[in-house]
Design a binder for these strands. Structure first.
Lengths: 268, 268
DNA sequence: AAAACAAGTTTCAAATAATGGAACCTGCAA
DNA sequence: TTGCAGGTTCCATTATTTGAAACTTGTTTT
């Protein structure tokens, strides 16, 4: 269902990678077997391939599998290459210093929100430990901010993939209600998360748009009801929006450096 | 040569991933075609698969490929799961604060050194931008520190894979000389890099060992000949060793939490 | 405007690799 | 010794991958 089927060996191998990643700790063959749709021999061979490719590493003492170092290497490249995250980093530092609250940078992945960077309030937790996590789009500030500015034709598909699980009494739980909410967000220019995901957690979020208007990601400042109110957070919106606009512009320039002319490209 | 051949579709797909990663920026189909051993149609289908799996993302406006968000997600998991890096992190912070110089955490990957975390001297560059790089084992402090404590039976294989390129006049450039050097390192307990990789760059490095003596990684403090000397750096060795031992112990405990007894494990 | 071209996409029979049920190891425990 | 669970290997069947060539599409050149 997730992927795979008669899709391709690559898909299956990646599903196995996800499976190992999901455990969050070294796993034995039989653990994986119990949780995978593949027969013993198939899974075994997939694991062998992945280990040979160093996408997984195998600890012979414990006979367990872990995610491999090649993955870390690729990730480094992925991060550097993604236009948004490296460009946004210094701006996150600035924003974090100014507001002193938790700051999130997120992008859409599939129909979910992927946190790609983060600054913590007091003593900042290094991003790696936090980023990389995915969250629901329909009940987070960053998620709603992005949804609100997505092309209309993409929305139905994405909304239909939301779980609409009512995490709290304030969670928006239907496509219809969400369409309403998104209109409000567009009118307002930024999104709130009013304890829709976790009780006591509130945030303001703004979309990061390319100069062409495409959604690149979202930026948010998060706090708790114990410390502040939505109204107070709303005060920050102009500043956050300003920073998001800068990030959007810089990213657009990075992605389309030769806006003025397009001379013949030559190959390597 | 690198991998693949008649090896498996997965290997080929991963090679394509590496290829994209190698460019360091979005690439067009034809760029990849020029640098890949695969015929047009094959490469095309591999790319399609990877995009479908969100390991790559395709920008239709520019018709370019970039590393995808699924990769970022997997990589974060890889980092979190690797026993060494998350455990070492706070210790790196401590060491960095104490010595005020560049600190590296590395692991062996294949026969090379993979930097998995880093602290910079003045204003620390966040790790993601630096870590993930690989370097040669035979001419870096961390590399030699790890080589010195590897099981003897693994050494020949690994040494035979070194390029022995003489980066500087001081670079060790033969297996024989290296065996000598490794003996010295074992006797001394830590390794130097005496401008063997880059002129003017020197460092002290110690291995991080499990309580069983297995090489988990290495920890180093790097500086320049303009700022200090090897003798001065050597003064730091006891402290670095102490920290490395702590990291080694904590990591060992994390990996083998039930050292005392091993009751019947049950499955999920 | 027509022709030539470059870049990307699709086709299809042949070749190859993946599949998975079952047999087979290998400790370890009863 | 026997039984058993966790791993590993076999191999005929099956399904996927392969890649030369044909085909689109969009862009220069004449």
């Amino acid at each position: 269902m997730t992927a795979a089927a008669g899709d391709g060996t690559v898909a299956k191998a990646l599903e196995v990678l996800d499976l190992v990643a999901g455990f969050g700790h070294p796993v034995r063959f039989s653990d994986l077997l119990d949780h995978s749709p593949y027969p013993k021999a198939t899974l075994y061979r997939l694991l062998q391939t992945l280990v040979a490719q160093r996408m997984l590493s195998f600890d012979p003492d414990r006979s367990t599998y872990t995610l491999g170092l090649r993955l870390v290497r690729l990730a480094h490249a992925a991060w550097d290459q993604s236009a948004l995250a490296p460009i946004a980093r210094p701006h996150l530092d600035v924003l974090s210093a100014e507001v002193g609250e938790t700051v999130h940078l997120a992008q859409m992945d599939h129909a979910q929100v992927l946190y790609v960077d983060k600054r913590n309030a007091r003593d900042p937790i290094p991003m790696y430990s936090q980023a990389g996590k995915v969250g629901p789009a329909y009940c987070t500030g960053v998620g709603k901010a992005m949804l609100a500015y997505l092309p209309e034709r993409d929305l139905p598909g994405i909304l239909s993939q939301q779980s609409w699980h009512p995490f709290t009494p304030k969670t928006v739980t239907s496509t219809a209600a969400m369409m309403q909410e998104l209109a409000t967000i567009r009118a307002r220019g930024f999104a709130f998360d009013d304890e829709e995901h976790e009780p006591g957690i509130i945030c303001v979020a703004v979309p990061i748009l390319s100069t062409g208007g495409a959604v690149l990601g979202a930026l948010s400042v998060t706090s708790t009801t114990a410390r502040t109110t939505l109204d107070n957070l709303a005060q920050l919106a102009p500043r956050i929006t300003q920073i998001a606009r800068t990030i959007g512009q810089e990213t657009t320039n990075w992605r389309f450096p030769e806006e003025t002319a397009h001379p013949n490209r030559k190959r390597a």
